[in-house]
Design a binder for these strands. Structure first.
Lengths: 182, 182
DNA sequence: AAAGCCATGTAACCAGTTACATGATTCT
DNA sequence: AGAATCATGTAACTGGTTACATGGCTTT
């Protein structure tokens, strides 16, 4: 039974930090995990449904004051157990797709400027991402003692910083290399 | 018509470097692109079929001497045009999935050692990858003038080095952070 | 008035993996 | 003898995206 179903566990894990709605989960993933994971509503809502069916989470409906109703989900003891089991299991290796590297590999077929401009845009994007990570880091360090979870979240932020920094360094190096052999 | 079909273009791009078989394409991707892209036979053979149907590549059958027959594909002028068009188009942003970061985010639910061991294994894996990249780099630098493609391939290798180095640095930092707060 | 956010959900589609089938040759 | 490598391919499945539907509230 080698089913992966990672989406289920991402959802379960986030709910283990605190009870929330499907909408909240989407926000969290987009804002705090976007540099290493993503989830669409098309994955989240079916996952919540199936977690509930399996008794790993329970649902409570909050009347929406000035807005639609919210369905808030909470992890059950069985849910915590399932999460722990998944956490103890093996990690799969990173799946990474850099389309920019793909296009660069075949870069000799287009003008050099096309490649240089791509690299500059990439650099820009990563510069922004790095600044975001630095903000997260500051915020986290201020509340580090307030929860055991924070140190683990900090680790992921540090990885984000490292990745973005290495992207920027590489882009600079690559632009220079291309320019010097005009 | 927002179809992606990246597999088609990876195959087309590799064939633009030199004519080869589906099997060869798989080798190339696994050996020289594995750190930023991957393809399975289940993508390669259907892609070759459809590229041929669209007149972007032509097929020649080589009688296998001491082995099975090989079908060697060559890019047509229309194929080169299609490749160029794709190369000029926009790049999609990186899709990255670090399952290790996912499990680390929820790391407070398991013993600290589990997390530390994960990080150590990750570090080890990335050391090996870095060494591989350094070998590629040496080989490439020796033949840099022999083809216009080599400089572009070198750029991707440099990115690989940067990524792996930053993984290693991060893992060390993360292990230390976890250990010091026992 | 229009755009955007809050909030939930489904159906159709596209992308990618895995397991399987076939069969010869070469290496241990 | 058995495993690995060369070589091609398909079918069934799992995973994930996108477009759509609904509708109220808030901001420009």
């Amino acid at each position: 039974m080698p089913k992966k179903n990672s989406a289920r566990f991402v959802v379960l894990g986030l709910l283990s930090h605190e009870p929330m709605s499907g909408y909240d989960i989407k926000q969290r993933v987009d804002r705090q995990m976007s540099y290493f994971w993503d989830l669409s509503y098309g994955q989240i809502y079916p996952a919540l449904r199936s977690l509930e069916d399996d008794g790993l989470v329970t649902k409570e409906i909050e009347e929406g004051e000035g807005g639609p109703d919210r369905k808030v989900y909470t992890v059950t003891p069985a849910g915590h157990e399932a999460l722990r089991e998944w956490l103890m299991g093996p990690v799969e290796t990173e799946r990474i797709r850099y389309e920019i590297l793909l296009k660069l590999t075949f870069g000799s077929h287009v003008a050099k400027d096309v490649n240089v401009e791509r690299l500059e845009a990439f650099r820009e994007r990563n510069e922004e991402n790095l600044r975001m990570m630095e903000m997260y880091e500051d915020n986290l360090r201020n509340v580090l003692e307030q929860s055991e979870d924070h140190i683990y979240i900090l680790l992921t932020v540090l990885m984000g910083k490292g990745i973005y920094r290495s992207h920027i360094t590489w882009a600079d190096q690559a632009i220079e290399l291309l320019k010097e052999r005009s």
